[in-house]
Simulated scan of single mutants.
Amino acid sequence: MGDTAKTASHMNGHRARLRERFLAGGADALQDYELLELILFLAIPRRDVKPLAKQLIDRYGSYAGVLSADVDSLRATAGLGDTAVAAIKSVQASALRLSKAGASARPVMSNWSLVSDYLQGAMAHIPREQFRILFLDRKNVLLADVVMSDGTVDEAAVYPREVVRRALELDATALILVHNHPSGDPTPSQADVMMTKNIVETCDRIGIRVHDHIIVGKTGQASFKELGLM
């Protein structure tokens, strides 16, 4: 058997063993780079993708970081074509849809752990500030999850009048403000405190309640309500 045939045989054997381990033991049976290999198998059928999977984990810091990476950033990675990028992003999209479905199943305030998990998955690894609002009905059931601003590495501008306008369009009676800190530290800044104060005051005037403002960091979240800031 020639070297090329031996390499192909070894690669196919590795892929088969990895699939068997996953199907028998689930995600816990694999390391992060191996789980990423499974995704890349589907998009890159004729190459050993283990080095690429390890490179991506190193570059983005974690499996979650790879899934959350920008499309343009992934496209700039040597060895990743559009098919592989689409495979990676489709896994993230599927995970977020599943998480969001669980978070939306019951009133938000009595289902907070699932809502928190969804927000962490959706926002923790975004390399720029994003501001979203969870609009709620009278029973605190989620009406809409709206990205209001997709900003820069340290700013995402949101104006109280835009918040109120969207709440009235949705017939929302309450809301939760959410944004991320790309630095990873969820500690509120003075600008965060002032912006929240302005939004709360504007919403109060028309009877819309702001339950909380959540800041999402890479390793956790900060709640304005729990910190006594609102």
Rank of each mutant, 00 (worst) to 15 (best):
Q190M: 13
R209E: 10
G228I: 12
R205Q: 12
I206A: 10
H181C: 05
H213A: 15
Q190T: 11
I199F: 05
P188L: 04
T196P: 00
K197D: 11
M195D: 10
V210P: 07
F224A: 13
V200R: 01
M195A: 13
N198C: 09
K225F: 14
M194E: 12
C203N: 05
M195G: 08
K197Y: 13
T196M: 02
S189P: 07
V200G: 00
T187C: 07
V200T: 03
T187A: 09
S223D: 03
I208S: 10
R205D: 09
I215T: 03
D204S: 11
Q221I: 15
K225A: 15
T202D: 04
P188E: 00
R205P: 03
I206Q: 11
G207Q: 03
M194W: 13
D192R: 03
H213N: 08
F224K: 13
H211N: 06
I199E: 00
C203S: 06
S223L: 07
Q190L: 05
D185I: 10
Q190C: 07
M194K: 12
M194R: 14
I214R: 02
G184C: 07
D212G: 02
D204G: 06
L227Q: 13
V193S: 02
V193F: 07
S183C: 07
K218P: 14
V216G: 02
E226Y: 14
F224P: 03
Q221M: 15
I214G: 03
I206D: 05
G184A: 09
I206E: 11
C203Y: 12
I214K: 05
D185L: 12
